[in-house]
């Protein structure tokens, strides 16, 4: 799956039918996620955001590269590290920030917080906090669309640590057995909280876990938005046309702690610095400039615009009211 970059005059994505517009959008989405979360970290420090808050910084290429090739009628599930994927899906920046602030204008009206972003109208199905709990739900959406004769696909992000849960294996078994149009994107960032994967998982290759179910599988460089896009295009085609699932291990890294309260004693500064050299946004930005698709000055202007967007989101969130007390008992039942 990992291909050496070929030195040709054509860009390496020339086979992917990606317009310059789309490439720029992908870059912008990654930068928006980065700036949004940097700001979220600051607001957390000020006490504006409560509870658990898990940042996606470093992993942006995985989410953006996986979501960019989807259709509007496709579905997305993820775990609690969900801001990046929500923004990549085009969920409202103001609504996302307001949700972090616990405000009624948030994407879940302040009922979910950082870990539970939802937008059914965009097929964004959350935002789940039990490690390994949501993969069967994703298989369920795939089951439902197939049952109703639709050709939507469902994608499911999950951390590598969730693959040690039993229900993950139950889900892979049924997804393959019943030929469900679902793609499991396992974001292998090397750690489940402070536990390195080697201390939690038997075996060498994570994606081999899908081998027992004879599911299409492989690893991809999750720090490379183009490679993510490429592998997802293949997996989506397989799901949409053949109703077959895929297990894709996206090798990535989180630059920040597990959550805001992580002292980070379990990995070295050198390791983090090593990965930062492969920063998915910087590397892709350089490539776009080298290919003449963006100028450095365009990037700077874009960054300014994004920072303004995020600033406005913070102001919007700050100015928004908390949910009224009367909603306390709403929406327990339909």
């Amino acid at each position: 799956m990992k291909e050496e970059k070929k030195k040709t005059t054509l860009p390496r994505w020339s086979d992917l039918n990606l317009s310059n517009e789309k490439l720029i959008k992908m870059y912008r989405d990654m930068l928006l996620i980065r700036r949004f979360e940097e700001r979220a970290a600051q607001e957390y420090g000020k006490g504006k955001i409560g509870g658990f808050c898990h940042l996606y910084i470093g992993q942006e290429a995985t989410g953006v590269g996986a979501i960019a090739p989807l259709r509007e009628d496709d579905f997305i599930y993820t775990a609690y590290r969900d801001h990046g994927q929500a923004l990549a899906r085009g969920m409202d920046t103001n609504g996302c920030m307001a949700e972090l602030f616990g405000k009624v204008t948030g994407v879940s009206k302040g009922m979910g917080g950082s870990m539970h972003f939802y937008d059914l109208s965009k097929g964004f199905m959350g935002g789940w906090g039990i490690v390994g709990g949501h993969p069967p739900l994703a298989a369920g959406s795939a089951f439902a669309t197939k049952y109703q004769g639709r050709d939507s696909v469902t994608i499911c992000f999950m951390g590598e640590a969730s693959t040690n849960q039993g229900v993950f294996h139950e889900t892979l078994n049924m997804a393959q057995l019943w030929k469900l149009p679902v793609i499991f994107i396992c974001e292998n960032n090397g750690y489940g909280m402070g536990t390195a994967i080697s201390r939690a998982m038997a075996g060498e290759e994570l994606f081999d876990k899908a081998a027992g179910y004879e599911m299409a599988r492989g690893a991809v460089n999750g720090m490379d938005v183009i490679e993510m896009y490429r592998e997802m295009t293949i997996a989506i085609e397989r799901a949409r046309k053949e109703n077959l699932p895929t297990f894709l291990e996206a090798r990535t890294y989180r630059f920040r702690g597990h959550s805001m309260s992580d002292p980070g004693q379990y990995r070295t500064k050198e390791e983090i610095e090593e990965y930062k050299k492969r920063d998915p946004i910087e590397t892709f930005g350089k490539e776009l400039v080298a290919e003449g698709i963006l100028k450095q000055s365009d990037i700077e202007l874009m960054d300014e615009a994004i920072k303004k967007e995020v600033q406005e989101a913070v102001e919007f969130a700050d100015a928004s009211p908390q949910p009224p007390i009367e909603v306390l008992y709403d929406n327990i039942y339909a």
Binding site: P135, A139, G140, F143, Q148, R150, N173, M174
Partner: peptide
């Protein structure tokens, strides 16, 4: 008929129901 996998098929049922397309 499902495999013997209660958590798995319960979750698949929930996801199917949540999808909001009449299942």
């Amino acid at each position: 008929d499902t495999p013997i996998t209660e958590a798995g098929f319960a979750g698949i049922g929930i996801g199917a129901a949540m999808t909001g397309i009449g299942v």
